[in-house]
Design a protein around this nucleic acid. Structure first.
Length: 334
DNA sequence: ATTCCACGGGAAAGCATGGACC
DNA sequence: GGTCCATGCTTTCCCGTGGAAT
């Protein structure tokens, strides 16, 4: 049933993109100077998750590379490479060999020097989930680099700018900003239809089934494709020719939680214990939570460190903090 | 008003790792 | 090889802030 599994992967970039013509035109205009060997405009893509921001950015860059021979580029996920060193490391990677640069024992200045020395073709950097960057210095660093231009992706426009330094905000004032809306049901269905056509056998799913998936995804294309992926995987395991409704109903919760599951696997044992405790008690005051943690774990970390862990769990969207100050509780996110 | 928590920034200590030097 | 140094990462300690309870 699955003909080409890559089509169902998150990183897959389609040959063509529908429903995003305006956004695509705006982004192309911003990137246009690169076709003449100049720096592209700094561009922001804002919108809810699964609205096609990342996909469009990568797609536009692919298109640009077809038109321009001399172009350098790099994609950085700031959620994963969340501090200055890691983000810069990722960017330096694109400028040449990095065998002499290591995760530890290489000064950040060395990375900056390498970027300063950069004398190649126009260089476009996509900074995805830029609101997750702990260290906004990276934006300064890149801003002053000659020949480097940025596409910055985030969910909330106001939230991002309120967290940035005023000087940085004023420097970015003139940048292009493109806003994305959630996909509506028909758009999601047509996105899914394309994926089925490219990746699965014909008629593996009916239109009604795709509409069911699209409805469950609530405008989020990533979730929709994730559900489609687990449905196809389940059907393939059963050696079925087509996907039935039961399989889809099973795939919906799985598709929704797939990202979360990956995040849990990345936690350290201590962090996972905290997660388990919150899961068990549903809602918990900070002091109680720390108490339970101390009871359960062998060599408990300090209170302060646990707070860092909890921030990380919140960052992964595994738990949520409710209320403020005294009445604060931690709760499991659905 | 005062006390009590909780939060989160920053400094410092401890750890792991690679490079230079012998 | 062995030792020392520099570096980034993680954890801990310290502390100011602010809201809620007393």
């Amino acid at each position: 049933m699955i003909q080409d599994a890559r089509v169902l992967q998150d990183e897959f970039i389609p040959k063509e993109i529908g429903h995003r013509d305006q956004e695509m035109n705006a982004l192309s205009r911003a990137l246009d100077p690169a076709t003449r060997g100049q720096s592209a405009e700094t561009t922001f893509l804002f919108g809810p998750s699964g609205a096609g921001k990342t996909c469009l950015a990568r797609f536009a860059l692919d298109r640009l590379r077809e038109a321009v021979i001399d172009l350098n580029h790099q994609y950085v996920n700031c959620w994963r490479d969340y501090n200055r060193f890691r983000a810069l490391y990722r960017i330096v990677e694109a400028t040449g060999p990095t065998y002499d640069i290591h995760r530890q024992s290489t000064p950040t200045d060395t990375l900056l020097d390498r970027l300063d020395e950069y004398d190649g073709p126009p260089f476009v950097v996509i900074l995805d989930e830029v609101d997750q960057l702990q260290d906004e210095d990276v934006l300064y660093d890149l801003y002053r680099m000659r020949g480097v231009s940025m596409i910055l992706i985030a969910n909330q426009e106001e939230e991002l700018f309120s967290s940035l330094d005023d000087r940085l905000v004023s420097r970015l004032r003139g940048s292009t900003r493109i806003r994305f809306e959630k996909y509506d049901l028909d758009e999601l269905v047509s996105i899914l239809e394309d994926r089925v056509q490219w990746g699965l056998t014909e008629d593996a799913l009916t239109h009604e089934q795709l509409a069911l998936i699209a409805d469950a995804a609530a405008g989020d294309a990533r979730v929709a494709i994730s559900i489609l992926r687990s449905a196809a995987r389940r059907a393939e395991q059963q050696e079925a020719e087509t996907v039935d409704f039961e399989t889809i109903h099973e795939a919906i919760p799985e598709g929704r939680t797939e990202v979360k599951q990956k995040n849990i696997e990345q936690l350290t044992p201590h962090q996972r214990t905290l997660y388990e405790i919150v899961k068990e008690y549903e809602t918990l005051a900070p002091s109680d939570l720390y108490e339970r943690y101390r009871e359960r774990v062998d060599k408990p970390r300090s209170n302060r460190t646990v707070r860092n862990y909890l921030s990380k769990l919140a960052h992964y969207n595994l738990v949520t903090k409710e209320g403020d100050g005294r009445g604060r509780t931690y709760r499991l996110l659905p």
